[in-house]
Design a protein around this nucleic acid. Structure first.
Length: 924
RNA sequence: GAGGAAGUGGCGGAAUUGGCAGACGCGCAUGACUUAGGAUCAUGUCUCUUUGAGGUGAGGGUUCGAGUCCCUCCUUCCUCACCA
């Protein structure tokens, strides 16, 4: 009896060996092609989650594959170590953020090592160390010098819960992205990065192999729109009010104006008799959070200021209103309202009895639009009317200058000085300062009303350790006099940097994490940049992934890459475009969801139809006793298909069809429930501690070994999609690795072997190599492993049949183990060593694919009748059109469908392209 | 409201991008070995009225041929959301 596969006995041994022999150190080598594979660095929250394994181990397999294929691969790891949780731990548990963070890093490092990934730990970077954040500060200073960083006043998102401001990207639905608590809009002076200056360049994804969805999300977030600005003036006082519009062709249809409640002119222009109602509206609007504004009924509220404006295009006198449907943060915070052609303005006009005037008349309607009879705004194409000299201009669906009417009006506005063409963006400047302790200090000081940067030689400004964490919610730095008091007259900035700034350049710090003369070593950068493949979650689409692109472009523009570009030229590489984008290829993994719920008990009542219960009422309960006197179906839900529940009732399966209007009671979900919610509740749920469905990778590794966990994660999901956890499925990869082990340990067979079987096995091996290559290239890890399982099955069958000789066995194993190495690095190393081959399997070249050897001699000719496959005929692989058609027409299937003696209408030959069988489609 | 992705067995998922739908695995069934089986091995496993026929959320269309392309719905997920 041979020894069985025991991962626990081999994994830590090899992990130590790999460390001791520096197997995964990556060094610049200009003679080898480089590959920078990067996976998003974790936040040191305390424990590695299964999601980290899901993101990282397939990325590791791919990096290993690239390495075996001859690339010099850099695959680093680090920690994004600043952030609020550390500070909250300090307050609630009285542990210093340093201690908490470093303890977590220690723990997670060990967990990361247990993956058996090829991380180069010599390049580890931790963003909360002074040697790291010194350079975050240094970048801030350079940005300040180049006008990219500035201090300014703006309406910002203030989180009362977190006691800090947040960037727009970190607010979702008016709530803070991390805690889900509402934020308020507040006028505050803060530090910003001028990301809007890069808006147009950020819209250009030329040459970037990123998921289309990410490109679309970023494009929408930037929100470029083309239109015009025009200046209206108040009738009294002549105050200018600038408006932005995408529809300058409707300027003649403006019947009133609307200012955002926060607009600076509001208080100036409001007349005495309107003051009371305007001020009470402002007060009411100011109290509302973003969430409340959205929860409000969609009725358009607003008040008249009493003031009028003159429309510059036709000198008309129109009333100025205030309404909260106009946002101060978009455009100019003021609009011209054209109710006939804008739905929001239309609703407002109807609600407040304001006039409506058609200025675009559609041509293809039976009835022309009339001011009085419109039931909704019309925003389609037509001809300009009621617009003086512009009448007759054709307005189309097109936007901006491409629309003839808009084009003509913009020209006219510019010629008459009444307005100008304008491009507007939804993107705001990046608010970078945080009123928190646990972040990189902002290297700035205030002296009187002067802003003074901390001199470079004083960097880094270090975070003081001896601070008091008080439950006031405010940063301890604001109480720490030795920190903020630089001199009698100078005060240090106590705000810190958004952690997203630190993670915007970590890919650069990995290149030389301990370099103390520059943020990164120019030679390293010249060789490794840009990142070739980046993997991570899609939740960073408009945060990290947008910020790091901006950061890269800003660094390029201020000359941070100049030295690296010089080094590239010296080594004969063209630096053109190398520093425009941080990552060439991006792929997002999906999310591993909690296990499917089973074992819910339900009470179902209704009427029986045959053996089926047509349920009018379904209640989910957490006890398993039949209530006294209950008539109906009670039991555990075994399965669900659509609306049919399979309920296990005392060993019998009962079918319950949930009626569309059935009453459904799910205690976890209050209020009226519907079938969808029931389905959802029973199906998949996100992993979370409160639901108790979190999967702990450490336990899995202890139970099955890291290789099995890695392979399970790669095999049982579409990696880019994710899916529900199901530990039952782990048996697949477990059985596979056991089988490979057993085949290897059994040693070469004693049989002589059979030439045809050996040739067939060789062919299958090459086909397998091809599929694995394609799978890894396309991040289709599941098919790559499926193909290896298939090959293992074929190998085992051939061995059992005694048709493989010792020599062939060895030659096959020599490649099989190398194919296994990227996926299951420990078992591959162990088998490699036991079969007597030289350390390490991970230094071996990847098995070469030979298309000639993969080719089949005999293939199945598929005979199709009207596109339906009916019969197959074994034929030579190189069969030609005439012969194939001849055989197909003579086949039994063809004879059955063809009337006696009748020729077919057509016979189409489809040659057997790569791995596909040839076909003849006969049309009868 | 706007934009995007997706819908395939009991389950996770394949289908080389328009060419034999359901690879591979889980589960299940039958059998073997066994005191035992949640071990191992073998065989089978889309459906049906089974010499054949039908089948990828529903309905249309394009094509010799559609899971794949086009149109109209339905459902789910994600992102943004009074964006002027």
């Amino acid at each position: 009896m041979t020894e069985s596969y025991q991962p626990q006995a081999i994994e830590s041994k090899w992990q130590r060996e790999w460390e001791a022999t520096e197997l995964y150190r990556s060094r610049v080598d200009w003679d080898k092609p480089k590959h920078y594979a990067l996976t998003m660095l974790p936040y040191p929250s305390g424990d590695l989650h299964i999601g980290h394994w899901f993101a990282m181990t397939p990325s590791d397999a791919r990096a290993r594959w690239m390495r075996m294929r001859g690339y010099n691969v850099l695959f680093p790891m680090g920690f994004d170590a600043f952030g609020l949780p550390a500070e909250q731990a300090a307050i609630s548990r009285n542990i210093h953020p340093w201690k908490w963070t470093y303890a977590n890093i220690e723990r997670m490092r060990a967990q990361l090592r247990s993956m058996g990934a090829m991380f180069d730990w010599e390049r580890e970077a931790i963003s909360c160390t002074p040697e790291y954040y010194k350079w975050s500060e240094w970048f801030f200073k350079r940005f300040f010098e180049h006008g990219i960083a500035y201090r300014g006043s703006a309406l910002v998102n203030w989180s009362e819960t977190l006691q800090t401001v947040l960037a727009n990207e970190q607010v979702i639905d008016g709530k803070d992205e991390r805690t889900g608590q509402p934020v308020q809009q507040k006028m505050m002076e803060q530090w910003f990065f001028r990301i809007t200056q890069y808006a147009d360049e950020l819209l250009d994804f030329e040459g970037m192999d990123w998921p289309p969805s990410i490109k679309i999300m970023q494009t929408n977030w930037i929100g470029r729109s083309e239109g015009a600005r025009a200046t209206f003036h108040t009738e009294i006082g002549g105050h200018p009010i600038e408006i932005y519009t995408t529809r300058p062709d409707t300027l003649w249809g403006a019947t009133f104006m609307v200012l955002a409640p926060e607009h600076e002119l509001v208080k100036k222009i409001t007349t005495a008799e309107r003051r009371e109602s305007v001020y009470s509206y402002l007060e009411q609007a100011g109290k509302q959070t973003e969430v409340e504004r959205m929860l409000e009924d969609r009725e358009k509220t607003g008040v008249f200021t009493g003031a009028y404006a003159i429309n510059p295009v036709n000198d008309e006198r129109i009333p100025i209103w205030i309404a909260d449907y106009v946002m101060i943060t978009y455009g100019t915070g003021a609009i011209m309202a054209v109710p006939a052609h804008d739905q929001r303005d239309f609703e407002f006009a109807r609600a407040h009895d304001l006039p409506i005037r058609v200025v675009i008349q559609p041509e293809d309607m039976e009835e022309p639009l009339r001011d009085a009879t419109m039931s909704e705004a019309y925003d389609g194409p037509g001809v300009m009317v009621n617009s003086d000299a512009m009448n007759g201009s054709r307005s189309t669906w097109q936007k901006g200058r491409k629309n003839p009417a808009i084009n003509r009006v913009i020209d006219w506005l510019e010629a008459t000085g009444k307005g100008r063409e304008s491009v507007n963006y939804r993107l705001r400047d990046w608010l970078i300062s945080r009123q928190r302790y646990w972040g990189g200090p902002i290297p700035m000081m205030y002296e009187g009303d002067q802003i003074v940067p901390v001199p470079d030689e004083d960097l880094p400004v270090e975070l003081p350790e001896d601070v008091d964490f008080m439950p006031t919610g405010r940063s301890p730095l604001t109480y720490h006099e030795p920190f903020f008091k630089v001199s009698e007259t100078a005060r240090r900035e106590t705000d810190t940097l958004d952690t997203f700034m630190c993670s915007s350049w970590y890919q650069l710090r990995y290149l030389s994490p301990h370099c103390d003369t520059a943020p990164f070593d120019a030679e390293e950068a010249a060789y490794w940049l840009p990142v070739d493949v980046y993997t991570g979650g899609a939740e960073h689409a408009v945060m990290h992934l947008l910020y790091t692109r901006f950061f890269t472009k800003a660094l390029r523009d201020i000359g941070v890459y100049d030295e690296a570009a010089e080094a590239m030229r010296r080594h004969g590489r063209d630096p053109e475009g190398a520093f425009d984008e941080p990552m060439t290829v991006l792929r997002n993994q999906g999310q591993v969801l909690g296990a499917e719920r089973q074992g819910d008990f339900v009470l179902c009542s209704g009427r029986m139809a045959g053996s089926r219960l047509m349920a009018e009422r379904v209640e989910v309960v957490d006890w398993n006793q039949v209530p006294a006197g209950f008539e109906g179906v009670f039991g555990e839900i075994a399965h669900r298909t659509e609306d049919v529940l399979h309920v296990n009732m005392a060993g019998l399966t009962q079918f319950v069809e949930v009626q569309p209007d059935a009453e459904i009671i799910i205690p976890d979900i209050p209020g009226a429930n519907n079938v969808n919610q029931l389905r959802h509740h029973l199906d998949i749920q996100r992993m979370s501690k409160s639901k108790g469905n979190v999967v702990n990778p450490d336990e899995l590794v202890a139970k099955y070994g890291a290789d099995v966990v890695r392979c399970y994660l790669m095999f049982n999901f579409d990696w880019q999609k994710g899916g529900p956890w199901n530990e039952n499925n782990i048996k697949g990869p477990l059985g596979w690795l056991n089988d490979v082990w057993d085949i290897a340990m059994a040693g070469p067979p004693g049989s002589a072997g059979d030439a045809a079987a050996e040739r067939d096995l060789e062919r299958k091996l090459h086909q397998t190599i091809d599929v694995i290559n394609r799978g890894l290239e396309d991040f289709s890890f599941n098919t790559a492993i499926a193909e290896q399982m298939k090959f293992k099955n074929a190998l085992r069958a051939a061995l059992r049949a005694g048709r493989i000789g010792a020599e062939t066995w060895r030659a096959v194993m020599h490649r099989l183990i190398r194919l296994l190495a990227p996926f299951a690095p420990h078992i591959a190393e162990e088998i490699w060593a036991r079969l007597g081959w030289e350390y390490s399997v991970h230094r071996q070249p990847w098995p070469q694919y030979d298309a000639e050897k993969a080719r089949e001699d005999v293939v199945d000719l598929v005979v199709m009748i009207n596109g339906k496959p009916r019969q197959t005929i074994p034929v030579a692989a190189d069969i030609q059109r005439e012969r194939a058609q001849e055989l197909a027409l003579a086949s039994a299937a063809a004879q059955r469908f063809l009337q006696a003696g009748q020729p077919p209408k057509r016979a189409i030959f489809i040659p057997g392209r790569k791995g596909m069988d040839p076909k003849v489609n006969i049309v009868v």
